[in-house]
Each structure stands twice: as structure tokens, then as C-alpha cells.
Amino acid sequence: MAEVVIEAENLTKRYGDFVAVDQVNLRLQAGEVFGLLGPNGSGKTTTILMLLGLTEPTAGLARVLGYDPQRQPLQVKSRVGYLPDQVGFDDELTARENLSYIAKLNGLRHPTGRIAEALARMGLGEVADKRVKTFSRGMKQRLGVAEILLKRPSVVVLDEPTLGLDPEAAREFLQIIRDLKREGITVLLSSHLLHQVQMICDRVGLFYRGKIVLEGRVTELAQQVLGGSYRVQLRAEGPDVTEILKAVPDVLSVDQREKSYYELEARRDVRAEAAHAAVSAGARLLAIGLQEPSLDDIYARYFESVGANDRSHLRIVGGA
């Protein structure tokens, strides 16, 4: 069994009557990428701040690399790299000077080489001596990662790392996260951009009103929330084949979205049977595909069910 690097036990944060984080339990193993998901204000950032010892939990325990962030924050903070959401730098200083300050705060002895290395790795070697105020959002984000690399951390915490980045910069950033994982660094990231999280996370935890209501691998969550259903999309010209498709075994429903476009919900992968049925009925089959369960679907479906039922439903899957 892999080593547990981040652990939270009934972590709770209250502001007066408002419960920002409600008895959150988390376990991250070394080397995994874990995504905290949820709408804005659902407690993701507060949880992160408690894990880093930057805010005090009202109750509960946290352990990061075996240290208590409350009592040993310096130990935690010298080993964990943190990229806050919408990271800011001293705009009047150059990229190199900004990193040099951070290196000194970390007590690094000879930081010059490390700084150059970190900047080069993030593709900022050319602009190292330019003032940060000339940087784009994506460059600042990469400078934030360069700063993290300076510490050579074993755990990295990223808060909304792709928020506000253009698609190209976001793609680059996801690649950076994959590279971190390849080096064996444990990554905890928070986001509300689900399709991006799905691409890189080993496991996810879904926050809702301060609680983690769903947790696990994306495929497991799909089973749990979508009831193990498969969605097949089929495009066929010619006669209406709705009734014929409905007759295929294990098909639960057929939805004709457009004149020649059908969506099937089925208990298993029925692509072969459905194609055969449509062609036999005289339709011209143009395309058929199986839709992977996406986090967006899981998310939407989950909140539909929460909205439809009463709130006690939340507890059924809570703290998985």
C-alpha cells in the first residue's frame, strides 16, 4: 500500500454560524493526482488553506507528509508547493527577482542555478529579466509553478490552476501537471472546470456545501451516479428508426434529437446491435459512437437528483 501523504479527518471550518467546510475526510496517496471539484464557495479553497496551515480549522485533524499543519506549519510549507488561485507577483520586479525573494524565504543557500533551471523548465528563460507586469496570465501561472519547483516539493497544491487561461495555455498547463505526476509528485488541485480535471485526475472529490459528497475514480462515480448506463449516438439517414432501435435488447430509451440523429441509453455497449438494426431497416448509417461518461454528466445528474430529492440524500454517498 502506497504511503499516505495528505490526510484529513473530520476537518471542519466554521465562520460564526456558517459552516464553510463540514467534516471533510481525505486521503491522498503518494504520486496520485486528486481533484477537488465543486461550485465556487463550496469549501475547496478553505480546505486547501487548512491543509497548508494558513487558516485554523475549527475542528478535526489534518496531516501533510506526517506533519500537523497547525503545529508544524514551517515543516509543511517548506515541503509543499502551493499555487493560489489568481496568483500575483511583485509587478515591479523581474521574474528572476521574484523567485530570488522566495528562494531566500525558503533559506536556499545557492539559489541562482535552481532559479535559472526552474524558469527554463517553465519556458520563461527568455523573459527571466523582464518585469512581471509585462507578463500574460498564463506566464504568471507558469512563473507560479517555477516558484513551486524551486522548493523541489513532494506535494503540490494547485487552486483553480486553469481558471482564466486561454485554451492553449490551459492545455499547456495540464501537460505541466502531467509532468509533475510523472516525477512522482503528489498533486492536489481544485477546479470547477470539469472536463479538464477529468483528463488529469486519478481520483476526484466532489464538494457541495462544504461536504465531499462523492469521491472516487471518474469511472466509479459514473457507475454510482449514472447507474452504469451507456450512451450511444447514432446518425442515420432514411426512414425513422426510433422504434426499431427501441426494440434492440438492453436499450432503455431512444431520443431522436434531430431528424437523423438518435441518442440511445443502454445497459451495455449496444453499438453493434444498434448498427445492424438500423441498417437492416433500410437506413444509411453515417456514424455511431459511444459517449464516455463525463464528469459534466455526473455532476449535472448528481445535482439534478439532489435538487429533486430532499437534502438528506446527500448523506447516502457522503464520505465515500
Binding site: L54, L74, K77, P84, G88, L105, N106, G107, G144
Partner: peptide
Amino acid sequence: NRRTLPRILAQPIY
């Protein structure tokens, strides 16, 4: 306002 505070406090200082 420059959003540098969380970054600085995430370094090993009090």
C-alpha cells in the same frame, strides 16, 4: 490586492 499574500505566507515563515 496584488494577491501576493497567500504566496508569501505559503513559504516557510510565520
